[in-house]
C-alpha cells in the first residue's frame, strides 16, 4: 500500500519511517512524502493513482490541506484515494469543513501512532 504523507515539517518523514519501519521492511506499506500541497499535487500528477492513501496536514503555507483535499476529491474520481486529514485544530468548524470536502478521516495532533496504524491497517482491508 502506497501512502503519501503531506506535511510542511520535514522531520515527519524520519518519524514516519521510524514508526512504520517494520511495515516498511515487510513491504506492507510504502511511504512517500510531500512538503506542501503544491508538491503533493505535482506528485500525484506524475505518479497517477499510485498512492491509495493520503495523510495531509491542514495548516501549511501556500496551498492548505483543505484545498488539497478539494482538488483531490474533484479531480480523482475513480477511485479517489482515501484522504485522511491531520490537524492541530480539532475544532468542529475544521472537522465539518474537511468532511464536507470529502475527507475520509480526521485526526488531531499529537498523532497517536498506534491508533493511526490500526486505521491504516483497517483501510488496507
Amino acid at each position: 500500500m502506497k501512502i503519501l504523507v503531506v506535511d510542511d515539517e520535514k522531520d515527519v518523514q524520519v518519524l514516519f519511517e521510524q514508526r512504520f519501519r517494520k511495515e516498511i521492511r515487510s513491504g506492507e506499506m510504502e511511504f512517500m512524502f510531500a512538503f506542501s500541497g503544491e508538491e503533493a499535487l505535482q506528485f500525484m500528477q506524475s505518479n497517477e493513482h499510485e498512492a491509495v492513501l493520503i495523510l495531509s496536514d491542514i495548516n501549511m503555507p501556500g496551498m492548505s490541506g483543505l484545498e488539497l483535499l478539494k482538488h483531490i476529491k474533484e479531480k480523482y474520481e475513480a477511485p479517489p484515494p482515501v484522504v485522511m486529514m491531520i490537524t492541530a485544530y480539532g475544532d468542529a468548524d475544521n472537522y465539518n469543513q474537511a468532511m464536507k470536502l470529502g475527507a475520509d478521516d480526521f485526526l488531531t495532533k499529537p498523532l497517536d501512532f498506534t491508533v493511526l496504524k490500526e486505521k491504516l491497517k483497517t483501510n488496507l482491508v
Binding site: E9, L15, Q18, R19, A88, K109, P110
Partner: peptide, 12 residues
C-alpha cells in the same frame, strides 16, 4: 506543540 510532538515521538 510541534517540536514537543517530535520529542515525544522520537523518544518513544
Amino acid at each position: 506543540q510541534n517540536p514537543l510532538n517530535f520529542v515525544n515521538n522520537f523518544s518513544e
